[in-house]
Design a protein around this nucleic acid. Sequence first.
DNA 1: CGCAAAATGATATATTGTATCAATCAGTGT
DNA 2: ACACTGATTGATACAATATATCATTTTGCG
Lengths: 173, 173
Amino acid sequence: MSGSHPMRKPTQGPKAQTQLRTLERLEAACRTRGRRLTRQRRAVLRALLAEGGALTAYELHERLRVADGRSTPAGVYRALEFWMTAGAVHRLESTRSFILCEHPESPHPGQLLICHECGQVVETEDKGVAAAANRLGERLGFVLDRHPVELTGVCRPCRAQGRAAEPGRRPAT
Amino acid sequence: MSGSHPMRKPTQGPKAQTQLRTLERLEAACRTRGRRLTRQRRAVLRALLAEGGALTAYELHERLRVADGRSTPAGVYRALEFWMTAGAVHRLESTRSFILCEHPESPHPGQLLICHECGQVVETEDKGVAAAANRLGERLGFVLDRHPVELTGVCRPCRAQGRAAEPGRRPAT
DNA sequence: CGCAAAATGATATATTGTATCAATCAGTGT
DNA sequence: ACACTGATTGATACAATATATCATTTTGCG
């Protein structure tokens, strides 16, 4: 993930601030409800925060292992499972990686825009997309769940640098 | 995939007819453009058609191996890659499986509604969802590509049978 | 036919994700 | 402080998914 893409540097801008507050809120909320906030779980969340983007489970494992040699893949997956259940982490199916949720206080389903050139991920809560998806679901008898919708494409900086501009597909017809 | 879910039986209704025509058209189109339509590629496409739903690469491998003991996972992945490039097969990221495209003649990005109870997949080309997604992309500087959008939920039959009705999430806050 | 490009077969290996079970830890009541 | 209980972890093994490599075979074409 971050090894294969020129991932954006984790800045200390207002976004990181927000995430930090979010982190504290999540940790507190978790503690007060009988769910345990353990060393390992905290470590996973903080590693994702420090990264500022998506990481695979094994990349997380590598990072945690530096500070705690006993970290295992299974442990990382357990912690990720815990945070996903809590709504604090999303899984990116299309890149098999994990990322902090930027709107953990909202119950709405969101969208994740993923640049397949640089790996950047932008999380949104677009009413239009959500409504259109729900209407479609209704029409076909599906009740959609709240996993964020993944939309892949190329972000502006990558287009500007000439990395893949075409929407592409259809070599056949 | 089909082993773990009570997958719908492949019917011989009008849909299968359509798919069959589609199959022939694809095979022909492929042949006439310098791309090779080989035994293995044909076998993969036909196995997906026969299934009438999604299959993982290894499930496909199992099936092909019956008729041709030399089938390998690598070969299956290569054939799938070929058909995906041709727009004839979609990959379902959320279930790591593959399914025939039902609208291979259309260049529009589609949606895949996936029931996570029974595994059923419905492919659509909803203008509303597509437009909303593109607007969102524009707003954020992303040019979206044409991978179908995956929407997961529970289909009507599964809700009727009491399998999981709730949209669910948020045990935390 | 004979060449070059495309595709395959065979094999190995990388990556991603779970299962199991004994040991440990954290909260609770005493 | 102590023991009880359930949650969590550590350690290990393994399952499932996906790709790399390279020698060989097949195909299209002149």
